[in-house]
Amino acid sequence: MKTCLVVDDSRVIRKVSRRILEDLGFEVAEAADGVEAMAWCTAVMPDVILLDWQMPVMDGLQFVKRLRSEPGGDRPKVVFCTVENSLERISEALNAGADEYIMKPFDGSIVAGKLEYLGLCA
Rank of each mutant, 00 (worst) to 15 (best):
D47G: 12
A39G: 09
S109Y: 06
P105K: 02
I13E: 11
G25K: 08
I90G: 01
M1E: 13
A37S: 01
G25P: 08
V35F: 08
D107N: 15
F26A: 00
I102A: 01
L87K: 15
A112C: 09
P46Q: 10
P76Y: 13
D99N: 15
K15F: 10
C81S: 12
V16W: 04
I49K: 03
E88Y: 12
Y101L: 03
C121E: 03
P76S: 14
V12Y: 12
G73Q: 07
K77S: 03
R19F: 14
V78T: 13
M55E: 06
A29M: 01
W40D: 08
G60Y: 04
V111R: 05
S91I: 13
F80Q: 06
M38T: 03
R18M: 00
Y117T: 06
D9K: 04
I102T: 02
V48Q: 01
C121D: 03
D59Q: 09
G119N: 08
V12M: 13
D99Y: 11
K2H: 10
L115H: 05
F26S: 05
R68V: 09
G72Q: 11
D99W: 12
P71E: 02
A112L: 00
E116Y: 07
S86F: 08
P46R: 05
P56C: 09
D59R: 08
C81K: 05
V64W: 07
D47Q: 09
Q62P: 05
V28P: 00
R19K: 15
V64D: 08
R89I: 07
E27P: 05
E88T: 13
K2Q: 10
M58I: 05
P76R: 10
C121S: 02
K65S: 01
T82Q: 06
L21K: 07
T82D: 00
V57E: 15
L67C: 06
Y101F: 13
D99M: 11
V35N: 00
R14F: 07
A31V: 09
L120S: 06
R11T: 12
V78Y: 11
D59K: 09
A93V: 02
V44Q: 15
K2G: 01
G119R: 08
G113A: 04
A93L: 01
V83A: 15
D107I: 10
D52K: 02
K15S: 12
I13Q: 10
P46D: 07
V6D: 00
G34Q: 01
A93K: 02
G113Y: 03
